Simulated assay, not measured.
Amino acid sequence: MGDLERPSGSRLVLHDHAEHPLTVRDLARLHLPSVQLAYLSACGTVRTSPELADEAVHIVSALQIAGFSHVVGSLWHVDDTIGASVAQGVYESLGTGDGALDVDRTAEALHSTVCALRDTYPQTPSLWACQVHAGP
């Protein structure tokens, strides 16, 4: 859930978010050296206010600061069916066949998945153009 007035107060909406919010500030303070991929299929995980458009204070950047080398987020609301399709396509592309994931291919996997959706819905970029990858 984005907080456009206080971006560091933006938070993940988890089961106990009302009592114990997990904010951008909390995430950025974590040190998780062995994590590799965070996939956020949610509304506006990279969104900030117009006044702070040149600052990268959002959940995606906080997860990168915490240690995730690859983070997939969204710029705006994700249609549930499309969001599930993108996640499935990305994870299938990352699979190595032995149950592991080749996360170094995350950007490529997201790109090819989004291109396939673009080909299916060429007149509706609002369905497929919101996913972004942050990382190498």
Results as ranks from 00 to 15, higher is better:
G2T: 13
D3T: 05
R6P: 00
P7S: 06
S8A: 15
G9D: 13
S10C: 05
S10G: 15
R11Q: 13
D16S: 06
H17D: 12
E19P: 02
E19A: 15
E19V: 12
H20D: 11
P21F: 08
T23M: 08
T23D: 10
D26A: 08
L27Q: 11
A28I: 03
L30Y: 00
V35K: 09
A42K: 05
C43A: 05
C43E: 04
G44N: 12
G44C: 10
T45C: 12
V46E: 13
R47Y: 07
P50I: 07
A53L: 09
A53I: 12
A56F: 07
V57D: 13
V60E: 07
V60Y: 08
V60P: 04
V60Q: 06
V60M: 08
A62W: 03
L63T: 11
Q64G: 15
G67S: 07
S69P: 00
H70D: 15
V72N: 09
L75A: 07
H77Y: 00
D79V: 02
T81R: 04
T81A: 08
I82F: 02
I82K: 03
S85W: 00
A87P: 00
G89S: 06
Y91K: 01
S93H: 14
G95R: 11
G95C: 08
D98E: 08
A100N: 06
V103E: 08
R105A: 14
A109F: 02
A109Y: 06
A109M: 03
H111W: 02
L117M: 14
T120Y: 03
T120F: 01
Y121D: 04
P125M: 04
C130S: 14
H133Y: 11
H133R: 11
P136E: 10
